[in-house]
Amino acid sequence: MSAGGDLIEKTAERHLREPWDELGLAGDRAFAYQRAGATFGIWIFIASEVLFFGALFLLYTAMRLEHAADFAIAARETNIVYGTLNTALLLTSGLCAAIASQASEQKGLQRLTLWCLGATVLLGLAFMAVKGVEYREDIEKHLLPGASFALKEPTTQLFFGFYWLATSIHAIHLSIGIALVVRLIWKEWREPGFLFESPQVEVAMLYWGFVDMIWIVLYPMLYLDGRAG
């Protein structure tokens, strides 16, 4: 691969930003420090996002406690094939993201990094496509809360209120993730070698992993309830 000696020489300086470049540390130590800072920063943001989605999950928990029977009836109406397929797609994209993140830290693995980023984006887009098909089917089945709602139990609408809300908030997060990864690929295309040791790869991939985790929790909420019996 193209990871020649001069590229490695340049790396630390290339990614070093203010104010980390003025700490009086040697170039590579300053860069390791900046990298640790960026990782810590995104993890604080993830902790913050845990509370954001946590509030959403609390809404589900409280509503399900209050209306358990209706929630089971409503959850039976979601399409488990699409849901399970999407879960598998996202889990696989999470694998690619993790491999891209680790490969970007190693010499000579730029091509692997790039391929894994590409696969991550494609799997993310596939998830969105499946979600779109599923949304269309949901609308055809009158599962949008409102006057013409398909189910007669009144609080089944609460479940579908949550369904539409949670899936669209997740989709917005996933779209941001896709945009972040596309930006990384674009940067690499503009400036080959960019991905190598870039803290931005790890930051974007940690965000991707978090969006994955949210879907993992949403899956049993939206698809698995009320299937037994």
């Binding site: 089971a72 993201a97 991939m205 978090f210 985790m213 993992i216 929790v217």
Partner: peptide, 29 residues
């Protein structure tokens, strides 16, 4: 979700989801 008794399905499924999330956090992230 299909095979377990209804009262067991939710704890099992959320337990599995928590395990999966932990795997992602620990080993992928």
């Amino acid at each position: 979700a299909y095979a377990a008794p209804a009262s067991w399905a939710a704890p099992i499924n959320f337990g599995i989801a928590a395990t999966q999330a932990a795997l992602v956090a620990l080993l992928l992230m």
